[in-house]
Computed example of a mutant assay.
Amino acid sequence: MKNYAADYKVRVIAGFVAGVLISSGSMFKIMYLPSANIQTMLGMVVLNFVFLPIFFYQLYKQSIAKMS
Rank of each mutant, 00 (worst) to 15 (best):
Y32P: 05
F56K: 04
K29V: 00
A5V: 14
S26I: 09
V45K: 03
F56L: 08
T40W: 08
A36M: 00
Y4H: 12
A6Q: 08
A5P: 05
I38E: 10
F51T: 10
S24C: 12
L47P: 00
S35E: 13
F16A: 15
I13A: 15
L21H: 00
F49A: 04
V20W: 07
L59Q: 12
D7W: 11
S24P: 06
K61E: 11
V45L: 08
I30Y: 10
P34K: 03
Y57S: 14
N37I: 08
N3L: 11
L21I: 04
Y60R: 05
Y57Q: 08
L59P: 01
A36L: 01
A36D: 04
V46T: 07
F56S: 02
L21E: 00
F28W: 09
F51A: 03
A18P: 04
Y60T: 06
S26A: 08
K29P: 00
Y60K: 07
L33C: 01
G25A: 05
S26H: 14
V45W: 03
G19Y: 05
F49Y: 07
G15W: 00
F28E: 06
L33N: 02
A5G: 15
F51I: 00
L21Q: 00
A5C: 08
M41T: 07
T40F: 11
V45P: 00
G15P: 02
V10P: 04
V20G: 06
V45Y: 04
S23E: 04
M44S: 12
T40R: 08
I22F: 04
A6V: 13
L59G: 04
S24E: 13
I38H: 02
K29H: 12
F49Q: 01
N48F: 15
Y4W: 11
I30T: 10
D7P: 11
Y8S: 13
I54F: 01
K61V: 13
F49D: 00
Y57V: 15
M27H: 12
V12S: 12
V46L: 03
A18M: 04
Y60S: 09
K9R: 14
A6S: 11
L42Q: 02
K9M: 14
M44H: 05
R11W: 14
Y57C: 10
Q58E: 08
Q58P: 01
G25H: 02
L47K: 09
Y8M: 09
Y57W: 12
I30K: 12
V45Q: 00
G25R: 06
S35T: 11
K61Q: 09
F49W: 00
M27E: 14
P34H: 03
G19M: 06
N3D: 12
V10G: 08
V17S: 12
A5S: 09
V17H: 07
F56N: 03
L21A: 13
Q39Y: 11
S24M: 13
V50I: 15
I13M: 07
A6N: 14
L33T: 04
I38F: 07
Y4E: 13
M41C: 06
S23Y: 07
Y60Q: 09
S23V: 10
P34L: 03
L42C: 11
M41L: 11
G25W: 02
F55R: 09
L52N: 02
V10T: 15
N3Q: 07
S26G: 14
M27W: 12
V12T: 15
V17L: 10
G43F: 01
F28M: 15
K61I: 09
A36Y: 01
I22A: 05
V12I: 12
M44V: 15
Y8C: 13
Y60H: 13
